[in-house]
Design a protein around this nucleic acid. Sequence first.
DNA 1: ACAGTCCGTGGACGCCATCGACCTGAGGCT
DNA 2: AGCCTCAGGTCGATGGCGTCCACGGACTGT
Lengths: 152, 152
Amino acid sequence: MDAIDLRLVELLRGNARLSYAELARQVGLSAPAVHERVGKLESSGVIRAYRAEAEPEAIGLGVTALIGIVEDSGGDTDDMLEAFRRMPEIESCYFMAGVESFLLKARVGTIAQLEELIMRLNRTPGVASTRTGIALSTKWENRPQPLELPSA
Amino acid sequence: MDAIDLRLVELLRGNARLSYAELARQVGLSAPAVHERVGKLESSGVIRAYRAEAEPEAIGLGVTALIGIVEDSGGDTDDMLEAFRRMPEIESCYFMAGVESFLLKARVGTIAQLEELIMRLNRTPGVASTRTGIALSTKWENRPQPLELPSA
DNA sequence: ACAGTCCGTGGACGCCATCGACCTGAGGCT
DNA sequence: AGCCTCAGGTCGATGGCGTCCACGGACTGT
């Protein structure tokens, strides 16, 4: 993981569809060299996935909610995680410090679907209570930030 | 935006580096037809970007925080947004219903950098108070969910 | 000095992206 | 009905790209 690797990650975070030839031009190496570096970044887990980002409203996911979960004193955290994982609406799941053990970001099509999701969450073993905040609008999301070497 | 477009978006949300040839095989069209459809999805804004997703720890962004912002009664929301936009650590910004007008997701390298960011936020005009939650771990993030036509 | 290893380059070859020409079906107009 | 037009597809050609391979230079440890 040197400066060139970091630059490659930065470029691909900005545009995952850049060709190896273009990446090679940007970092001053040959295409095969870049190909090998990116392959290693993928198999070592530094690069986890390449995803297209879609306008949520356009694909029927116009309702965004952030849901804090308070855990039962006797709850099994792993079981809860497994239950959350089986709910496809939950796009992100953070394990938090504080009273609320989890913070979930969910996207659904309608408020009715959100209501149904919250009821399912409240019924999930280990969940003591939920607190839901609705996002009126998403100003931006997953904006990539400039990267620098930890040493710098 | 028909069923084939939706399928293309779904495929690209799963893997943004799929070739047009591969997409064409998956949806049963020719590569040029897929090329044109994807181009239209991009220029109409349905597909906003293609991003590589990297392991945050590996790129020096090991600290994740979710920050709620309470707005001053006299605050200018647009000015605040502009100020947040200039802080690269803020990866996502939601305008929320509730007491806290904004919810921000920030990623930094160290707790010291987080402290510095929170101080900058508290100094920002329009910000009455902040409430920061630290993510101890990110279980998953931006998991794409299966899509279906709104009518269905 | 030597061999081994790592990491790069250059060349070759087949697949892919992309352009242009043509085809087909649906809808509206005369 | 017959025709025009347009949207959206297929097909074929071509140039660039991805990817494999053999080779070479710099560092390291012995």
